[in-house]
């Protein structure tokens, strides 16, 4: 996006909403900001309609603040809690349907490559665990196997939170949730391992409690996807509503169960070193 496209035409300053003026005057477009700058600029998200203490909402906020080029990033989401929040990001984003976010993103990315051969347009898939690992597993895998230049970010709250807390493939074995009344019968789907085996050049896991590391991983994942091939980032985002804990405990829980892992292919390693991120 050319920065001047977002500027306000003379004479319209008074009638444009305040947050638009903030975004134009103090937004993150084209400034290369990150987590460490939070509090000093107008963020892409101002408010959200999700539950108090929502780990997923915080993860989207942190991800949005870490995008290496928010002015040229398009986010593709899917049905779930994320789809209620995502349309309120000041960035082009698409609610696909349920489970087809990766295939839609692949078509979008290819179209943008054709239309902007000399410009980076980062297409980021950001969806829940059910959307990616259950209903959307096939297109997720196939975009990886086809080596599409996409970043896939899973917001893993280990359940279908929007539909009322049902067990998902990413829930832990034994978890008692709706539709798993006697406890989940099989272990958490090993998505990071699958991502690695399916051709992702960069795979990482982190929790929402680890803001700086999360921010760095977002930047790495998007940069590698832009230049090399598919990347996968799995963020653990506890859900107080469906796992029935106090809204003040989200970060504590995230920290307790956080697993940090980073797989970087040798090609990606070189790129990350050169970019110094």
């Amino acid at each position: 996006m050319k920065k001047n496209i977002a500027t306000i035409s003379p004479g319209f300053e008074d009638i444009m909403p305040e947050e638009y003026q903030d975004l134009v005057n103090d937004g993150p477009y084209g400034r290369g900001l990150g987590i460490k700058n939070l509090g000093t600029f107008k963020e892409l998200i101002e408010e959200h309609p999700l539950c108090a203490g929502c780990g997923l909402a915080l993860a989207i906020r942190l991800t949005a603040a870490s995008l290496p080029a928010p002015e040229d990033t398009i986010i593709v989401g899917t049905t779930g809690c994320n789809s209620i929040l995502m349309p309120q990001l000041a960035i082009h984003n698409i609610h696909s349907l349920f489970g087809n976010q990766s295939s839609l993103a692949a078509g979008l990315k290819r179209a943008l490559k054709l239309r902007y051969p000399d410009k980076n347009k980062d297409v980021v898939v950001m969806a829940g665990d059910g959307g990616i690992a259950d209903i959307g597993l096939s297109p997720t895998l196939h975009t990886w196997l086809r080596r599409e230049n996409l970043t896939t970010i899973m917001l893993d709250n280990e359940s279908y939170s929007n539909t009322g807390g049902q067990e998902s493939g990413m829930s832990c074995e034994g978890a008692v949730l709706n539709m798993a009344p006697t406890g989940k019968k099989f272990p958490k789907i090993p998505m990071p391992e699958i991502a690695k085996d399916s051709g992702c050049a960069y795979v990482a896991t982190v929790s929402v409690a680890n803001a700086r590391r999360l921010g760095r991983m977002v930047k790495r994942a998007i940069l590698v996807a832009r230049e090399i091939g598919p990347t996968y980032l799995q963020i653990f985002v506890p859900c107080p509503t469906n796992y029935k804990f106090s809204t003040s405990e989200t970060l504590k829980r995230a920290k307790e169960r956080e697993k940090i892992m980073e797989y970087i292919s040798s090609e990606a390693e070189k790129l990350i070193k050169e970019a110094n991120i």
Binding site: V76, I94, S96, L104, L108, K109, A111
Partner: peptide, 9 residues
Amino acid sequence: SAIAGARMG
């Protein structure tokens, strides 16, 4: 879906 994405792009 991919066709939709390409058209949206």
